[in-house]
Amino acid sequence: MVKSWLFEIFSYPYDPDPAKFDPQLCKDLYDWKLESWVAAEDLGFDGVFFSEHHFTPYSISPSPNLLVATLAQRTSRMNIGVMANITAFHNPRRLAEEGAMLDYLTGGRLEVGLGRGVDEPEFIREGVKMEETRARFEESVALIQSAWTEPTFTFKGEFYKYDNVSLWPRPLRSELPIWVTALSPQTVSWAARQGFRFTSVFSPTENMRTIFEQYKKAAAEAGREAEPTDMGVCRNVFIADSEQEARDLAEPAFDALFAAFKEAAVFHDLENVPAGYEHYQSFFRPFAGEDVSFDALIDIGAICVGRPETVRDQIVSQMEQIGCGNFLNWGSFGTLTKEQTMRSYQLFGEHVVPALRSLKV
């Protein structure tokens, strides 16, 4: 069985000039996005993951835990989480407290996603040194786990220190599912050793398979057997009633997303990235140029576009090849309207969700 999730970056698709920000357009966007997430439950999706970004119209979800709490009150079955809270931008004690609260507010449906972050412009504007992010990330995760499991905990780290304190409340469940966003080999192996699930995005299907093989090897070395449910693959997805309609709508929408992504995420100088981010020199290089074609992205599996049967077969093939148990549908992006997005979600629910649910990986 492969689970189906929605993944939401939540871009502001209008004029990117801050002086021209339109509160009413923003309100309308929040309203219909919430409507689409609620509808996902009826369409058979297993859950929704939000994201955290700052300072640009690439995302208007700077505090995604608020979205988790809001959606929890309008749904009853789906799991809900964030992929991911960027630990360097938070006090981990506060993240632990919010996670515990959300476990109650979701009725035990919370999925915890944590990441060290990779978007250089955000770190520059926040004044956080990227060279410190891995140390901060691993220390934050350790502190959060201590706070959740120990009635009273003491923590002495490089960045955070607590002496004989308690978390009120601790989570509803004795153990919360933890996901991390992982592309670099070091993070993938670390997640495997910790027993955390992980997700990846944008890489070709064959690369995704290699990443998961690395994860399984590290898990085995740590004394456990990795399962298909340990990995999630995120893809941009758009489905319409015909191949041509899907292409005509998805290509300009992806171009708009790509432009925003380049501005918000790609390192400005790929020859001189911060220490610890060397892996991303090769990962971001295609996005730094102007030669990433829509067809090339389809060919490597990074985006799935077409009629329901076409997209179903693309995704099923990828999941079988990777051996992965979770598919994240990043289906609302760029210039896609409410009607176009909702129709795509409907077709995904009717044609892709059942095929993934019956798939053995």
Rank of each mutant, 00 (worst) to 15 (best):
S61D: 10
K20I: 12
G276Q: 08
G306H: 06
A220W: 04
P169M: 08
V353G: 01
I124G: 09
E97P: 12
W37I: 06
V316M: 02
V180D: 00
E52G: 08
M101F: 11
D299M: 06
P204K: 02
A226P: 12
L34V: 08
T106K: 13
A302G: 06
D248G: 03
T154V: 08
D241A: 06
D22I: 07
R235T: 01
R134F: 10
A275S: 13
A264R: 11
E251V: 05
C26Y: 14
L176Q: 11
E350Q: 13
E339H: 07
I298D: 00
H351A: 07
E251L: 12
A259N: 08
I322N: 02
P169N: 09
V82A: 09
V361D: 03
W32F: 12
M208I: 08
Y280I: 11
A191F: 01
E150N: 11
E138D: 00
R285M: 08
E350T: 14
K216C: 02
Q24K: 14
V141D: 06
V316H: 00
C26H: 15
A246S: 04
R247F: 13
T337G: 03
V180E: 00
V361I: 06
I298T: 05
M208S: 07
R235S: 02
F137V: 01
V305M: 05
H54S: 04
F196D: 06
A253Y: 11
V353I: 15
R74P: 06
N207I: 09
A256Y: 07
T310N: 01
G107C: 12
A218K: 02
S189K: 09
V266R: 03
N207Y: 07
T70E: 11
M78F: 03
P13C: 00
T181K: 04
D255K: 13
P13F: 10
E213D: 14
G223S: 03
D269C: 05
F198W: 11
L183M: 10
E139Y: 12
S344R: 09
K156M: 10
S59C: 11
E35S: 11
N236M: 14
T87D: 12
E111G: 00
Q73N: 05
L6D: 03
E158F: 05
H54Y: 15
S51A: 13
A222Q: 08
S166T: 10
M342I: 10
I298M: 14
K360D: 15
G117A: 05
R173N: 14
E8F: 07
A240W: 09
Q321C: 01
V233W: 09
A264S: 15
G107H: 12
I211K: 03
F89P: 13
P18H: 15
W330I: 01
A40W: 00
P171Y: 06
A219L: 01
T70Y: 00
E139I: 05
D269F: 02
A147E: 07
S76P: 12
N65L: 11
V201C: 02
M208A: 10
T87A: 13
F155D: 14
A296R: 10
P204S: 07
S59Y: 09
V112L: 15
S282P: 01
F196R: 04
F21E: 12
I86G: 13
H54K: 04
N329F: 13
P64G: 04
Y12N: 04
V352T: 04
